[in-house]
Simulated assay, not measured.
Amino acid sequence: MLSIVLSRKDFREHDQIVSLYVKENGKLSLIVRGVKKIVSKNSAHLEPFSFVNITIEKGKEADYLTRVQSVDYLRNVRENLNKSLMASYAVSIVDKFFSEGDHDEQFFIFLENFLFFLNDLENIDNKEIILLLDYFMVNLLYFLGFNFSSNEKIANSSILPYIEILEKGNLAEVLLIDFDLYSAKKIHKVIHNWFEHLLERKVADWALTCII
């Protein structure tokens, strides 16, 4: 089953719990036996934002990941610190806000497209980092059940045209938005504040987290 690795954490002496977004099943947490052992063949394939094919074994109290095959390691992302931070942030947010069993194949496609777009980018500057992550977070809200542009205050504000591009445009169109870095940061701050307001939770500012 095609999956995107979201996170991994230690469990018992040699095992880990790996969180994935599976195309067919949505978000799942699976135990991987022996993955911390030096001889483990699975460990290298289970880094966050990797694309993998997995086999699952049903257990009485938990399910187990018994086989993993690498599909795409996104090498170009990992070799660029800014892009690596962006991809790591994106999958960590998915892991944080999606519940076990949440399933939407369209969201899988959205996340897949975002990660491969990052992988294919030759270079990226600070303004583009902000624009792309604003795009990701605004659309994440949509998949979580919130329509940013339908909010009355946003709908009556000067940033509505920008929000509509983020909601309805594609990634290539987002990069064509004619903003300087100062304007991008100013509008980003509004988006971040509204993101926290709508979800009623603190969220690390992606512009600060992913720009070095």
Rank of each mutant, 00 (worst) to 15 (best):
L133E: 13
G169D: 02
I124T: 05
I191V: 15
N147Q: 10
D178Y: 09
Y162F: 15
K189C: 00
K185P: 08
L131R: 04
E164K: 14
G145F: 09
L121T: 08
D178W: 07
F179S: 01
N156S: 14
F108R: 05
L181N: 10
E173Y: 05
L175W: 06
F148Q: 05
S99F: 10
L141G: 09
A155C: 00
M137A: 07
K127M: 10
A172K: 12
D178N: 15
G169E: 08
D125Y: 09
I159C: 03
E105V: 13
L118K: 01
I130Y: 06
L133N: 14
F143P: 03
S158T: 10
L132M: 08
A155N: 11
F107N: 01
F143V: 02
I163F: 10
I187W: 14
M137V: 15
N123L: 14
I109M: 11
S150R: 13
Y162C: 00
K186T: 14
E164M: 10
D178V: 04
F143L: 03
L175M: 02
L144C: 06
K127I: 11
I109S: 12
N126H: 13
F179K: 03
Y182Q: 13
M137I: 15
G101S: 03
D178G: 07
G145I: 10
N156K: 14
A184C: 12
I165N: 09
S183E: 15
S99N: 11
N123H: 13
L121N: 10
I163R: 09
F136N: 04
D134G: 05
N151I: 08
V190E: 14
M137E: 14
F107A: 03
N119A: 09
L115P: 04
V190S: 13
L176P: 00
Q106E: 15
F110M: 08
L141S: 06
D134N: 15
E152A: 06
F136K: 08
V190F: 08
Y162K: 02
L115F: 09
M137W: 00
V190R: 14
L132H: 11
